[in-house]
Every structure is written in structure tokens, then in C-alpha cells.
Nucleic acid binder design. Sequence first.
DNA 1: TTGTAGGCGTTATCAA
DNA 2: TTGATAACGCCTACAA
Lengths: 239, 239
Amino acid sequence: MNLQDVANKAGVGAATVSRVLNGHPGVKASTRAKVLRAVEDLKYKPNLHARSLAGGRSQVLGIVMANLYNPFFADIYHAIETHARQSGYETLLANSSHDMKWLKASVHRLLGQQVAGLGVFPEMEPAILDELRETRIPVVLFDAGAVGGNFTTIDFDYRKGARMLLDLIHALGHRRLAYIGAPLLLQPTETRRIEFLETTARYGSESLVVTPVDDGFAGGREAARELLRSGFQLRRFCA
Amino acid sequence: MNLQDVANKAGVGAATVSRVLNGHPGVKASTRAKVLRAVEDLKYKPNLHARSLAGGRSQVLGIVMANLYNPFFADIYHAIETHARQSGYETLLANSSHDMKWLKASVHRLLGQQVAGLGVFPEMEPAILDELRETRIPVVLFDAGAVGGNFTTIDFDYRKGARMLLDLIHALGHRRLAYIGAPLLLQPTETRRIEFLETTARYGSESLVVTPVDDGFAGGREAARELLRSGFQLRRFCA
DNA sequence: TTGTAGGCGTTATCAA
DNA sequence: TTGATAACGCCTACAA
């Protein structure tokens, strides 16, 4: 079931069908109608592979995430998708669960898919970064430090963010604080942990740091249990 | 940047490069080495669109989810992806945020992508279902009732599940129960709500049903607030 | 063991 | 306003 079939059914040339399907101007209204009816009748669906092969560039953005479990990343992905749509882009998700091998494979797959741009959130090996730099396609990195060329990066001031949060918590009257950090010792986690310790010390608040093994719900449970064992009762909730 | 370039660089024919890349047998070791070196030198990445156009079949499964925010669905997607990988399949995600228009578009996109199979989790219009039935490609539906042909469905006994949960809660000694339901009045939600009311009545437990407007974190907060306003204090946590 | 050529379904370029 | 026809990059007989 291809373009030619539709063209035959409508009694026109393949090029005309293509023009109608892509909204090109200069097609007589009656011809257009014939084509559309044939498309409808045959329930024709264009082959997207052929389309992007012939067309050249695509309107697809490749997104690589480490862990969609994490609502934080799910949130980011959702935002990206929404904005991409508004700008007429599709979105292609590839998640490599904290595994460098899969990450590499995912990036290569996305490149093979001829994406127009790439957004990468997990930490990357320098080798892949170099490879990406040579592709010349726009890449947005997350927390990757200073970069240039076709690279853009989204960086955060984790230290400041943590301090603002702790100030708020202190202002709300809380004096006994616990910090649950991600299991992987990434730079952002470390930074937040340090800020937590320094700020609670400055306030003279009681503090406790818990680092679960798992980066997910199991880790959360584990951390909560350890917290309770350590004497952090949740009295505040009980009025 | 294409097969022919690699072939030229390696001093062989395009077909040989293709054979090497696809692990076909019957290529002299020395030739294979030459090709691989050329691939490496040129940092060649095969065009996946051309590949699946020429190759015909694809090893890609299309998955449509309503809401990746919801950890339940994120979990399911993750499981699908893991198992698909183990069976040599890629996974293509399309999420249509509870919007029938996007759902339809997503399904069409996936079909255009020539997926080998489809997994659809949001509820579908009968029209799309009919369309899918004619494509002849295997489709797995979620809670879609009895189907046949190329359709398979995963159904749940929500009633029994709810009862088992309530029995457990009762056995643990709880006598004051609240039910927070999804905002959309889907069949499964309704079924669970009814079972909740019947079982709590049977046990003579105190019960309350809350239905937030939003299907997400905001809805959860809303529901929790309403719960607390209604006198459901969380005393059990305070020993 | 390797190369040549035809075809996959679409878009784009010409003529007509 | 249309219709052939040549790419697009790859795979796969078929030959050599």
C-alpha cells in the first residue's frame, strides 16, 4: 500500500498525491478531493522512513534520559515534549538506565535516525562527546560544564538552590533536618549534601544524612526506614 | 558519509560493507578488517531510515502511554522495554496525554514508522481500533475487554484485587479507611470504588472517598488536603 | 569471496 | 496544473 497505489486509485500521478499530502500549493481543488478520497478509501499511511530518506532532514529531536522512574526526569521530558510540539518538532525518547553501554547505543541509534537535535541528560563519556561534537548537530547537555560549538549546556547553581530551600525550612520553624541523597556520588548530589551540612551547622539545627543504595522507590523506603530507626519521628505531622 | 563512501575508502564494494555491518558470513577476515577500519576512520553511522526502507521488516515495538508521570505506567513501560530488549526489539514511545487527538496522531506515527507490533495503554476510540485491526499487525491492548484477530488484551480483576487489599488492611487492624480515586471516571476506577464501599461496609469500617480533579501530583495534594479537612488525622504514624 | 544492479516509498526537479 | 523520473542510502539476489 504505497503512494503509487493511491495515485492509481485516484487516477493521477504519484507526484500529485505527494503534493496533496504535504499541502503543497498549486493543486486543483477537484484533484485534491479525488486524492483525499482515495487516501481515505485505501486507509493509506505514508511510510515515514521513505519520507525522511527522500526528504533529507527531519523534524525530530532525540532525547536521552537515564531514568524515567525519577519523576524529576519524567517532568523534564514532559516539558521538552510539550515545547517541541509547539515548535513543530517530534520527540524521540531513548533511555539508558545509568548504563554507559546502552547510553552509547542510544545515542548512535538517535543519530542513525537523523535527528535534528539531541538532548542528553545522563553523564557522558568524553569519547561520545567528541563524537557528537563532530556530527555538527545541535546538542543540549545537562550539567556538563562549559562547552561550545554545537554544544549548549544547562547548568544549575545547586549550592544556592539548596541554601534557599534550607532557609525556607528554617524560617518555617524546623530545627531537626534529614537529608536523603541519591545513591550515585555525582557532583550535584555531593554539592547539595555539603551545603546541607554547612547550613544546618550554621543554624545550629540537628541534622542527619542518609544515602540509600537504590535510585528509586526501594531506595526511598530504605532511607525512610533508616531515618525512623535513627530517632527521627515524624512528630510534626501529628499536631 | 554513506555506505559507498566507506566502500571507496576501504577499496571494496558497497555490498561487502553491508555484509560486514550486518554480520553476514562469508567475508574474508582481512577484508572485514579493512572495512571496519574505514568505518572507524570515517565515523560512519548507518542511516536507519534507509536501512528499514530497504530491509522491509523492523524490530521495533511501538508503545503508547497516556501519562508517564504516573509511576504505575512508567513502571510498565520500563518492564516492556527491558523484556523487548532481551528479545532483540527496540521500543518506540509515544505518549498522548489523555488527549484523543494526540493518541490518534501517535498511533498513526507509529504505524508510519513500520513498527512490528503495538502496545496501547490509554483507552481507544472504536474507530482507531477498527483501523488497527485492518493493519494486521499484532496489537496488545490494556483492559480492552474481549478481542480477537491480531488483538491481545491484558485484563485485570480489579474487584478481586481491591478486595484482597482491603482484607489485608483490615487484618492489619485498620478500621478507618479513605479511598483516593483517579479523576477520570474510567471503568477500573469505578469498580475499585464500588468494591471499596461494599467491603468497608461489610467490615463496618469507617470510610471516605475522595476524587481529586487532577491526575498527578497536584491531584494527590488536593486529595490529601481534603482528607485532612474531613477529620482523617494520621494518628497511626505517631505511635 | 566479492561486485553489480535493482528495488524499497517518498520527495523534488523538470518538462509538458 | 500535472506527470515522469532521478535521487535518498541501504539490502539482497544474481553474477563473476
